[in-house]
Lab assay of single mutants.
Amino acid sequence: RRVTVRKADAGGLGISIKGGRENKMPILISKIFKGLAADQTEALFVGDAILSVNGEDLSSATHDEAVQALKKTGKEVVLEVKYMK
């Protein structure tokens, strides 16, 4: 599913991630910080795999590559996510 997140002037997306190619895992949302941008969408969940950020494929990204992709986003971020059981 596709989720658009609008960041506030102060603060980032409000998520922590884990996983990555070096761990043989997808990039997973490991924490959502209450009240910040990702939480306010009410459409992102701990355990979601982030498949892409603004069209940039993260399916084979390392953890560091995913962190950089998320950091360089502007005010509006489009995440392609899939819930992983």
Rank of each mutant, 00 (worst) to 15 (best):
S59I: 06
F33C: 14
K18Q: 13
N54K: 03
I50E: 06
Y83T: 15
S52L: 02
K82A: 12
A61H: 10
G55K: 05
A66F: 06
N54Q: 06
L36E: 15
T4E: 08
E65N: 05
V81G: 05
L51F: 07
F33W: 15
E56N: 15
V3L: 03
T62A: 05
M84C: 14
A69W: 04
K85R: 14
G20Q: 05
D48R: 03
E56L: 12
M25G: 08
M84Q: 13
S59D: 04
A38Y: 10
K24L: 09
L13A: 02
R21A: 13
G55M: 04
I50M: 05
V81H: 04
E80V: 10
K71F: 09
Q68T: 12
K85F: 15
E22P: 00
N23H: 15
G20F: 00
I32H: 03
T73Y: 07
T73I: 09
G47Q: 05
S30K: 09
S59K: 12
Y83M: 13
I15L: 11
I32E: 04
S52R: 10
S52W: 01
I50S: 01
D39C: 05
R21Y: 10
S52H: 04
H63L: 11
V77F: 08
M84S: 11
D39G: 06
I15F: 15
V77I: 08
L36S: 15
K24G: 14
E65S: 05
L58E: 01
L36I: 01
K72N: 15
V81A: 05
P26S: 00
N23P: 03
V67D: 08
A10E: 13
I27P: 03
L58R: 03
K75H: 11
I27W: 00
I50N: 06
I29K: 03
S52C: 05
K24T: 06
S16M: 13
R2M: 13
T41S: 12
I32W: 01
L13Y: 04
E22D: 12
L28T: 14
F45Q: 14
D9L: 13
G20W: 01
A8T: 15
G55W: 00
D48E: 00
L36R: 12
R2Q: 09
T62N: 07
S16G: 11
A38M: 08
A69C: 14
H63A: 10
A37V: 07
F45V: 09
P26A: 01
G12N: 12
A10Q: 13
N54Y: 00
K7D: 10
T62R: 06
V46N: 06
Q68R: 13
E80R: 07
V67R: 09
A69G: 01
Y83P: 15
E42C: 12
E22M: 04
K75Y: 07
K24R: 12
V46G: 04
A38V: 08
G12H: 09
I15W: 01
D39Q: 06
L28R: 07
A37F: 03
D64K: 12
I50Y: 02
G20L: 00
G11E: 14
K82M: 12
L51C: 08
K75W: 05
G14R: 03
G14C: 03
G35N: 09
V3M: 04
A61P: 02
G74R: 08
L36M: 14
E22S: 04
G74V: 06
A38I: 08
E65T: 07
S60H: 15
A10R: 13
D48C: 05
I32S: 02
K82E: 13
T73F: 04
K18I: 14
G35W: 00
K75P: 14
Y83N: 13
K82F: 06
I17L: 09
K71Y: 10
L79M: 10
A69Q: 07
R1T: 02
D64P: 07
D9Y: 13
K18H: 12
T62D: 04
M84A: 13
L13R: 03
Q40M: 09
E56Q: 15
D48V: 01
V81D: 02
N54V: 02
M25I: 03
N54S: 03
A61G: 03
A61Q: 02
A66I: 00
G19R: 01
F33E: 15
G47F: 05
V3C: 00
A10Y: 11
I50P: 06
D48T: 00
K71G: 11
L51V: 09
L79S: 06
K7G: 11
K85P: 14
I32T: 02
G47K: 00
I32R: 02
T4K: 08
D39T: 01
D9P: 14
A61W: 02
E65G: 05
L79C: 04
D9Q: 12
P26M: 04
R6S: 12
N23C: 11
A10F: 14
G47L: 03
G19I: 00
L51G: 04
S60W: 09
K85H: 09
I29S: 02
D64R: 12
G35Y: 10
V53L: 07
T62W: 04
A8V: 13
K18F: 10
A66C: 05
V67S: 09
D48W: 04
K31H: 12
S60V: 09
S59F: 03
T73H: 09
L28N: 00
L58Q: 04
S60G: 13
M25Y: 11
A10T: 15
G20T: 00
Q68E: 14
V5F: 07
K24P: 00
A61V: 08
Y83L: 10
L13D: 01
A66H: 05
K85Y: 12
I17Y: 00
Q68L: 10
K82V: 11
K75F: 07
L51I: 11
Q68W: 08
T73A: 15
S52F: 05
K71R: 13
K85C: 15
G12P: 09
V53Q: 01
K24N: 14
E80Y: 08
R1G: 00
M84V: 11
A43E: 12
K75S: 13
L79T: 05
G14S: 01
T62Y: 07
M84T: 12
F33P: 08
K7N: 14
H63E: 09
E42N: 15
I50D: 04
K18P: 02
L13F: 08
G47E: 05
R1H: 06
T4Y: 13
A37M: 01
K72S: 14
G47I: 00
M25E: 12
L13T: 01
S59G: 08
T62S: 11
A69T: 11
Q68V: 08
V67Y: 10
R6V: 14
K85M: 13
A37W: 06
A66L: 02
Q68Y: 07
G12M: 11
V5A: 05
H63S: 10
Y83V: 08
K18A: 13
V78I: 07
K18R: 13
K18W: 13
G12Q: 12
A43K: 13
D9M: 13
G12E: 15
K7M: 13
H63D: 08
D9G: 14
F33K: 15
K82C: 11
H63N: 10
V3W: 00
K82R: 13
E22T: 05
K72Y: 11
E80A: 03
V5H: 04
S60R: 14
G74L: 04
I15D: 02
G11V: 10
R21G: 05
E80S: 06
D9C: 13
L28V: 15
N23S: 11
V5G: 01
G35S: 06
K24W: 04
V67C: 11
G74Y: 02
D9S: 14
L51W: 05
D39P: 02
K71M: 12
D48M: 02
K31G: 08
N54W: 01
A66S: 04
T4C: 11
R21W: 07
L28C: 10
K34H: 10
H63Y: 15
I27C: 03
K34D: 10
G11S: 13
F45M: 14
D9H: 14
L70Y: 02
L36Y: 10
K75T: 12
G14T: 02
A10S: 14
R2S: 09
L79V: 06
K18S: 15
H63P: 01
K75R: 14
I17A: 03
G12T: 11
K31L: 01
D48S: 03
V67M: 12
G11K: 12
L58C: 05
F33R: 12
A38L: 04
R6K: 14
E80Q: 09
G12W: 07
L79A: 05
A69M: 13
G74T: 10
E42I: 00
I15S: 00
A8Y: 08
V67L: 13
A69E: 05
V77M: 09
K31A: 09
F45K: 12
D64N: 09
G47M: 05
S59E: 09
